[in-house]
Every structure is written in structure tokens, then in C-alpha cells.
Design a protein around this nucleic acid. Sequence first.
DNA 1: TGATTATATCTAAATATTATCATATGTCAA
DNA 2: TTGACATATGATAATATTTAGATATAATCA
Lengths: 118, 118
Amino acid sequence: MIIFRYNHIVNKEILKIKAEVFNALAHPLRLKILEKLRSGACCVCKIIPYVGGEQSNVSHHLAILRKAGIVRSEKKGLEVWYEVIDSKIFEIIDIIDKCIVSNLQRGKTILNALIKRH
Amino acid sequence: MIIFRYNHIVNKEILKIKAEVFNALAHPLRLKILEKLRSGACCVCKIIPYVGGEQSNVSHHLAILRKAGIVRSEKKGLEVWYEVIDSKIFEIIDIIDKCIVSNLQRGKTILNALIKRH
DNA sequence: TGATTATATCTAAATATTATCATATGTCAA
DNA sequence: TTGACATATGATAATATTTAGATATAATCA
């Protein structure tokens, strides 16, 4: 099938999309937004005080998460409610958490070994 | 314990570290480097032709992965070998892959529904 | 020792991201 | 319709990232 000839282009494109998703996750404020959305859909008016920060700034970050396909929004009267599209995103965040913890533990072990030598 | 008073600072700091790890993953070239490292440790001289790009640029991206605690390097004679520290990072990449595929499928379904209406 | 090789670092220009402020949009209620 | 409210968008300045080229470092070999 002719489509296979385009595999390298498709792969490149997929790498780019993946990088864009990671990029959307690469900001403390956006991670905090997702932390809030972990317990379910939520109104922007609740997200703003939770994460702390300017209304327009939070709105910007929500737009970044939206464009990356991580969350979707829905208007309910005056309010806008956001929710995570695919909860697999939380698995990712949890794995990163574990990675960081074991990294810190490794650091601690090395530090202890160094201290004992003196 | 007094340490609990610092929880919010610690949380903030952890969010920042997490964001930094995601940031390290947020580039097609770095994802491609990790793709190469999935099969095990690898020399820079193999990574460069695999990912394609300037030597200095690849070296820079390797440094970013190193600083984020995702890979480590070891000198072997003239060569430098890199390897992934914690293979959980691949689980993350695989989950993102699945998310993207199901997102694309959802898009396709919606598109089909729209087409049928006309 | 000096040349060669592999990789890292520095520099600068181009580009992207972030935060803030100002303004626009859309919804409701009087 | 007008005004108030919740949220989004646009413009801008500050900052960070990316890339390529030039140079530096460190290991090996003649």
C-alpha cells in the first residue's frame, strides 16, 4: 500500500503531536489545573482561586490545555465548565510523580554514602 | 511536626519539578532520542545519525534530558554512552500515544457523523 | 608530544512562551 | 435594551528555548 511510503512523515508528525501534549503539561499552573480537575468537571470560577493567579492568565493556560486536546469546555449559563477528556492523563502524572520520588531517593542514598566517608 | 507547615511550598516545588520533566519530554528531537534509547544504552555517535541534526544541537538536547534526570551518561574511551535512568518514562510515552490515537479516532467519528448529515 | 576523534560548551540570532493589562464576547436579569 | 457578570482574546514586554556555527575539552593513538 502506497501509504507506507509516508510512514516517516507520519512518524515525524506523531512525534510533534506527542511533544505538543507534553508541552501542554510542562507548566506548574497547568498541572495544578489538572490536579483540580482530577475530581471531575469544574467551573472556571473555582479553578481560578484554586490555582491562584490572574483570570486572564488562567484562561490562557486553560486554552493551552484545550488546544492540546487534554481538556474540553462547556458553557453552562454564565459559567464555563472544564473537564479532562481522557483520564489516562492522570496515570501519566502519577508515573512522573513516582519517577521523581525514586530519583530523589537515589540522590539521598548517594548523599548518605558520601557523608559516611567523612 | 513543623515540616507540615512547609507542605504548600513543597507541593509548589514538586509541581515545578514535574513541569520540568514534562518540559524535557516536550520536543520531537528529544522524544526521538528516547525512542533510540528504548532498546538500551547507546553511544552519541549512533544517536546523532538516528535523530538527524547538528552534533551540537543533539548534544544540547541530551544535556536537557540529563538535567531533567531522564537519562544518564557514561564515558567509554572517546565515546559517551547514554541510557534512560527509569524505564517508567516509556510507559508515559506509550500512554500519550494511546491518548493521541483515541483522540484521532474520536475526531474521525465526529467527522464521519458530520459527513453523513450532508 | 602532537594530531585526531568524539562530545560538550559558548555565542548569537530567530523563535516561542509567559504574565499582565486592556478589551471583547456572550449570557442573564432587571 | 441596558448593565453586570464570567470568561476569552489580543497586544505587549520580559524571558526562555532552539538552532547553527565556532570553539573547547578530554581520550586515544602515532
